[in-house]
Design a protein around this nucleic acid. Sequence first.
DNA 1: TTGAAAGCGCTAACAG
DNA 2: CTGTTAGCGCTTTCAA
Lengths: 352, 352
Amino acid sequence: MDEAEGGRRDYRAEAEPLTPRDGAARRPVTLADVAREARVGESTVSRVLRSHGSYSQKTRAQVEAAVARLGYVPNRIAGTLASTGSRLIGIVIPSLTNIVFPDLLRGATATLEAEGFQPVIAVTDYDQDREETVVDSLLSWRPAGLIVTGLEHNPGTVRRLAASGVRVAELLDVDGPGLDIVVGYSNRAAGAASARHLVGRGYRRIGYIGHDLGRDRRAAKRYAGFREGLGAAGLALAGEERIAAPSSIEAGRTGLAALLARVRDLDAAYFSNDDMALGGYFHCLARGLAVPGRLALFGYNGLDVGRLMPQPLATIRTPRVEAGATAARLVCGSGPATVVDLGFELVEGATA
Amino acid sequence: MDEAEGGRRDYRAEAEPLTPRDGAARRPVTLADVAREARVGESTVSRVLRSHGSYSQKTRAQVEAAVARLGYVPNRIAGTLASTGSRLIGIVIPSLTNIVFPDLLRGATATLEAEGFQPVIAVTDYDQDREETVVDSLLSWRPAGLIVTGLEHNPGTVRRLAASGVRVAELLDVDGPGLDIVVGYSNRAAGAASARHLVGRGYRRIGYIGHDLGRDRRAAKRYAGFREGLGAAGLALAGEERIAAPSSIEAGRTGLAALLARVRDLDAAYFSNDDMALGGYFHCLARGLAVPGRLALFGYNGLDVGRLMPQPLATIRTPRVEAGATAARLVCGSGPATVVDLGFELVEGATA
DNA sequence: TTGAAAGCGCTAACAG
DNA sequence: CTGTTAGCGCTTTCAA
């Protein structure tokens, strides 16, 4: 099925690299060089470059000319050390495989960029011990703030965070106590709303297909909320299938297949997220199961792909990009500790 | 169709934040504090902490005890300034919307982490002027290296890069001269291989559905390669549709619809990537067009979603994660300028 | 409006 | 094996 193409090869660049690796590494241009070139003091250059304090227009011109002539690039490492805080914001996310987290990053980086901050990212693979490690590592850069995902952390992580004194924003969950800034939505409420919706549409034999809930705490909260929602209607799950792996289209597809093999009379399937649900949808298409006639499908996240399926996916849309942006804005500010619940939106779609 | 839920609300955290914003900001613990506490010199502490140079086991124990007692976190800003280079690697990508770039990041961050480096990311939105700006900004952190996407840059960007003397890796393209390290695959060859494959399967009325080629230079190279491939077989495109926007499932769906409305007798559609092709597939499903009987589909990237569709998508699989990892490894090293062509793989799938 | 000088917290010689 | 002493490049008083 696969055909090797575009053969692998390693070779030296034919042309001389534009970045000569010259042995005689020339000393980088410093602010002192600029001062000398512009015939002014170092502090004057510093003021001009940061448009801070006062200086004459003539001086400004001289400095700018010198900067251009020398190709000076300020050294923010030195600047940060000399001044109080850095313009770095650490961002800790569990994964880059699920588009949800790039979406967060997208919102955060756009806002940070606008405010003159630089994001430094770290990935935990849904592992709280790794989170502790990367938080430590990020903290050593003395960031102005840290954005982390979720409300559950190791005690050690919390201790370090508290001791560091930096602002912390926790993202994507509001179901529990936060450390400082909390931006997200209630996963529990989302799960419950999903259950109410399915029940309201008349489904009674509802199954759950999910991924590794031990690691993904927010998915676990949705699951709990969903069961509560069913319970409130006097129902219970007709069956469930959990994949001991991160969520994926594949896990959704094989998960639904496995569940249907065991519980044949399901009339609806609730998935831990849209990726999983898409996998389920593909299974239905492949097997010719009518959706929602034979089986209704419900997801979580409101991804583009769900909106564009031949039948739009029933799901819960979450404002992820906005959450990232909001967290970035607040973490750079100096407001009080806050919880911002951005809410969510139930998308009826056509699969349920 | 939409139902508002999980109402938005802003409120103060009920519990006292674990990170007290105490007005009397306590002075952070420094290496000097540790030295005093451990009753040794500062340089001794430094040596122990970096396991560099020599010291007695007894000293090591004292230092470690002091570090633990004081909760000391090293300040890498200061460390970097005092030593030669930083352990920061800048990564510049055009977008976070297409999963391809998070994939790159995934490969790169994993490798960087293992080598003790920290990634700092910036997003250009496929804008070369913005690339110049963010490269400048990244350079001011004096990174050990920079990973950028593609081979096309503003002259100003190239100048700054060259002047900085940092290692630079260019990713995802090998069709053209590079600055230093180049890691990727030939987009042109991929386009040509796609054309040969479709022609080989007997398709003759082939259309192209693409996105903004002015900004996405690699997609433009695939397009050029594809046309060359057709030309070599004595064929030409039977029609094409270009969306003046970034690639998306939606653009693929509407693009194919528009093209079929104009050119009714197409027998195959070549898409600028898998997202676009997925949109096309959804269009076919929605309209009941048999794939590949009525219309064959071909994409680019080899995303999971294509593999898991009821009919696996015909596409070209690219080693993106590996490319990110390779670039990270090389950019942290001190080897010669290199081009690494990782090649690609044609996936026959079932849609062509 | 400007410059001199004193650090920021750490690393890297260099003595001892 | 360990401490002392210079800086790294910049910002920030504080005088001038």
